[in-house]
Design a binder for these strands. Structure first.
Length: 534
RNA sequence: GCGCCCGUAGCUCAGCCGGAUAGAGCACCGGCCUUCUAAGCCGUAGGUCAGAGGUUCGAAUCCUCUCGGGCGCACCA
């Protein structure tokens, strides 16, 4: 019989649902399959969806099956209205959660050696890393922000030589500028500072160290000042050099040798990458005796594991992509689980001015620094713009748009929504409309579709934060905020919040309060200020 | 040559752990201020989701290949 065949099919689906844990077996046999009384309701109809959802009917207004097999659940408005007290009662924490279970996470980013000011590329990385760290900590992770740097080695020697050359040059003495020296104006500034401190006392200095040290100090201070302007504070600066001093680099070599994963050839020490699934073996100690960057990187990552982190997030520019497989293979070879390391590679930034791409070249120090950018657009705009794209995408930073203090600038758009909400509150107070206690908030009066939509968006905020955190994708917050601000502006233009209807006014003022909280908390997560007036 | 990323509206980009009619902002065009900030709103238009195969009941989404663009492929970091 046809009905039996269909019933068997539905029973089977029901059982599968039970097995998968979608619902309990309590409703087994409790649902029907009958010929409907009226035409237009199919040949046979089952109330399966209703029965399965029966324990939750207080939430549901109606349930429909539609299209190619969707069960559409329409929730009662009260469900959405109940979001508001929750938001307002948890002003400081709404959006935060503990899904991270206090997992220890290390977020490493920037990690620029002190050879020059931060470029806009670093800026993107700095903001990206900081926002990711912020999201992780908002979701209950125990986060450490770390900056890994090296103030020894070839790069720094060249920096010292460059500084010396500029020093001699400024004194009008003969000098030779290193072939691959640092050409920026900042080196000249440092040289000038040395002259002010020492006069020509260093002109016969045999060591490069005083030049190097001075340059390093000045540049690191600059970098930190810049980071500070961006609102970024690191918990820890990890010096690559300390790895050598503590014998940790040698120890990695010894361990690799022990496992037969390192060998000598052509006077160099090689890592047997081919043994670890990599396309080729790599030099880890040059024939000069100096290690390549790979080796200390492996040692550093091993230290991260030893320091007890459950999850290690590395933020790198896409030009460092080649290092990733090597380091991860090294970590694995040393007996640690590379799946605990997540590398976020971000693409480059191009600046657009007057519709034209601004040409930049690191080598010639012909690049726009984060400082210059901040002078021009400020920290809020810089942070917001750096987060407007997912890390994978190249980021086009449109200075023309960023410097506009008008409707087109998305940063102001969002901030304005927040300021407007504050303004409404002030206006209401001036008119003597009192919010009253949250418990008495007449949220039942929020019945317009526009209002339910706003409530839904607010309700989705914590989940959005969690997803953005776990996927290391802060750009989602930016999109969310733009959407929410847009919804509010639209609502504002259509409906009056403070009106003759005192109860409705209070309800809407609470709605405004909730929106303000979500906007403010969202902006805080990406490190952008939420002004109360603009 | 090899590896990774990208290719979605005129432009800049979301969506990408498969689902219903693919979204937003700019730009264009047309409207809205005696009332809570016009730094705002409303409306019109705009698409072979680079292309070709494949998997699937179903693909922008997954697989393969091709074509474009970016970044790498050091005894630099």
């Amino acid at each position: 019989m046809i009905k039996t065949r269909l019933k068997t099919l539905i029973d089977h689906c029901f059982d599968q649902g039970v097995e998968a844990g979608f619902w309990s077996a309590a409703a087994a046999g409790g649902y029907s399959l009958d010929e409907p009384k009226h035409a237009g309701q199919g040949d046979l109809a089952t109330n399966l969806a209703m029965v399965v959802l029966a324990p939750h009917t207080d939430l549901l207004e109606r349930v429909e099956v539609a299209g190619p097999g969707f069960v559409n659940c329409y929730l009662n408005k009260t469900v959405w209205q109940s979001v508001l007290p929750e938001v307002c009662a948890n002003e400081a924490t709404f959006g935060r959660s503990d899904i991270g279970k206090a997992k220890k996470v290390l977020v490493e980013f920037v990690s620029a050696n002190p050879t020059g000011p931060l470029s806009v590329g670093h800026g993107r990385q700095a903001v990206l890393g900081d926002a990711i760290a912020g999201l992780l900590s908002a979701t209950g992770h125990q986060v450490t922000r770390e900056y890994y740097y090296n103030d020894a080695g070839r790069q720094m020697r060249v920096l010292g030589e460059s500084t010396r050359a500029r020093y001699l040059e400024a004194l009008g003495l003969p000098f030779t500028f290193p072939e691959d020296g640092y050409q920026g104006q900042y080196i000249r500034d440092i040289a000038q500072a040395l002259i002010e401190e020492h006069g020509d006392g260093l002109k016969d200095e045999p060591e490069v160290t005083p030049f190097k040290n001075k340059a390093e100090r000045v540049i690191f201070d600059d970098i930190n000042t810049t980071l500070h302007r961006l609102g970024i504070v690191f918990d820890n600066y990890y010096n690559e050099h300390s790895l050598y001093e503590n014998g940790l680099v040698d120890d990695v070599v010894a361990s690799l040798r022990e496992k037969g994963l390192a060998y000598d050839q052509d006077g160099a020490v090689w890592f047997k990458g081919t043994e670890c699934g990599l396309p080729q073996d790599r030099v880890i100690i040059k024939s000069t005796g100096e290690p390549t960057y790979r080796l200390p990187d492996m040692a550093y990552h091993r230290e991260k594991f030893k320091r007890g982190f459950d999850w290690m997030v590395d933020i790198f520019g896409s030009d460092h992509i080649a290092t990733v497989p090597d380091v991860l293979a090294g970590v694995k070879a040393l007996g640690y689980d590379p799946s605990k390391v997540t590398v976020v590679l971000h693409q480059f930034v191009t600046l657009l001015r007057d519709g034209q791409q601004v040409k930049m070249s690191t080598r010639k120090a012909n690049f726009v620094t984060v400082d210059e950018l901040l002078d021009e657009v400020g920290a809020d705009v810089a942070r917001f713009f750096f987060l407007m794209r997912k890390a994978d995408s190249q980021l086009e930073f449109d200075l023309d748009l960023a410097t506009k203090t008008s409707q087109e600038n998305p940063v102001y758009y969002v901030q304005y929504a927040h300021a407007r909400l504050h303004s409404i509150r002030r206006q209401a107070e001036a008119k003597g409309v009192v919010l009253g206690s949250l418990a008495d908030a007449p949220v039942g009066r929020l019945t317009l579709d526009d209002e339910i939509l706003l409530l839904k968006a607010m309700a989705g905020f914590p989940g959005l934060v969690q997803g953005a955190a776990l996927d290391l994708a802060p750009h989602r917050l930016v999109f969310f905020l733009q959407d929410l601000a847009g919804q509010f502006h639209s609502y504002y233009n259509k409906h009056r919040i403070v009106s003759e209807d005192e109860e409705l006014s209070r309800a809407r003022l609470w709605l405004a309060m909730g929106l303000r909280i979500v906007l403010r908390n969202g902006l805080a997560l990406i490190g952008v200020s939420a002004p109360e007036s603009m």
